[in-house]
């Protein structure tokens, strides 16, 4: 890897989010909480989602890990909070596609905003998991919250 590659990886935006992460901390209320780890390096995130009327009202977290994983968590919360669950899921899908695209996917700034800074990460297979950790945790937690809401309705209806 060269110095230019290094700068492509560590975009200023990433380092900013790393130093000053958004939405950090665990908060109430929440419908689902998950704990995800990256088994190869030990990065960890505990993440909660709070949904109201099909909207992502809050995502709160406690995370340990490298600059890429921390910054990506911060960017993710900033992007999904306030969106409809459907819209947030589609942002998640775009980010995942970008990360798994081996550097061949053109990021859409309209959708991903600060998330496009991670385009360079896709070229470092060892770091893709770092960037995706909290996004996968969010997807998992949201699916759980929706499934629980589904069962609750069924119980009330039944």
């Amino acid at each position: 890897m060269t110095a230019q590659d290094l700068d492509a990886l560590y975009q200023e935006i990433i380092l900013d989010h790393y130093k000053n992460p958004l939405n950090k901390g665990l908060r109430d209320p929440f419908e689902a909480e998950v704990h995800h780890v990256n088994p190869t390096c030990g990065d960890e995130v505990t993440l909660r989602v709070h949904l109201t009327d099909g909207k992502v009202s809050d995502v709160s977290y406690d995370a340990m890990g490298c600059s890429i994983s921390q910054a990506s968590t911060s960017v993710m919360t900033d992007l999904v909070i306030g969106k409809s669950v459907e819209e947030a899921m589609s942002i998640q899908a775009s980010f995942q596609e970008l990360m798994q695209g081996r550097g061949n996917v053109e990021p859409d700034e309209e959708v991903l905003e600060d998330g496009i800074a991670f385009a360079g990460v896709a070229k470092f297979p060892a770091r893709v998991k770092c960037a995706l950790l909290s996004w996968m945790a969010w997807k998992d937690a949201t699916a759980q919250a929706l499934a629980d809401a589904g069962t609750d309705e069924e119980t009330t209806n039944g």
């Binding site: 890897m1 060269t2 110095a3 590659d5 290094l6 990886l9 560590y10 190869t40 390096c41 030990g42 990065d43 890990g65 490298c66 600059s67 890429i68 921390q70 470092f124 770091r127 770092c130």
Partner: peptide, 29 residues
């Protein structure tokens, strides 16, 4: 102030190959 992954990545950009992570010794960490 710098996570081991980031240390290893920057060292790699200088040609220095080290390992970062829990080195399969999580309890010791």
């Amino acid at each position: 102030g710098v996570h081991p992954h980031d240390v290893a990545q920057v060292l790699d950009s200088r040609g220095v190959a080290v390992r970062a992570g829990h080195h399969c010794a999580k309890p010791a960490h």
